[in-house]
């Protein structure tokens, strides 16, 4: 078997990233859209950690921790907005969230 190098991890990360993009662009359910964003962030994290291994430094890992912090903040605010919206409009579909005010 071929030894596992950085490019292998990059391909996995690219696949996860594209899956996340497909989820964001095509799904209607807001919760699943938010989960797809988590997929994208994970793909980025995997890239960072793989590069940090490649160069033998730790900067990539430090940045991936910042991205985890970011993901937590994003999930909290996103789900908060979702709950507020659900309370008003009784829907969680993205394409029905199209009014500027009501």
């Amino acid at each position: 078997m071929v030894p596992i190098t950085t490019i292998h991890y990059l391909v996995v990360a690219a696949a996860l990233f594209v899956l996340g993009v497909i989820g964001v662009l095509t799904r209607r359910n807001v919760v699943i859209v938010l989960m797809s964003i988590e997929l994208i962030l994970n793909a980025v994290n995997l890239n960072l950690v793989a590069f940090s291994r490649m160069w033998g430094g730790l900067q990539g890992q430090v940045f991936s921790i910042f991205i985890v912090v970011d993901a937590a903040a994003e999930a909290a605010v996103g789900l908060g907005i979702l709950i507020a919206f659900f309370r008003n409009k009784e829907t969680i579909n993205v394409d029905e969230i199209d009014l500027l005010k009501w």
């Binding site: 940090s52 659900f86 969680i92």
Partner: peptide, 29 residues
């Protein structure tokens, strides 16, 4: 990739925290 700390953070923050938040909200809405 020899990044055990990031792996631990991933399990605690993502799998133990964020996903519980997601499941919580899914049950609410």
């Amino acid at each position: 990739l020899y990044a055990p700390f990031v792996a631990g953070v991933q399990i605690i923050v993502y799998a133990g925290g964020i996903m519980v938040l997601f499941l919580f909200v899914i049950m609410l809405v």
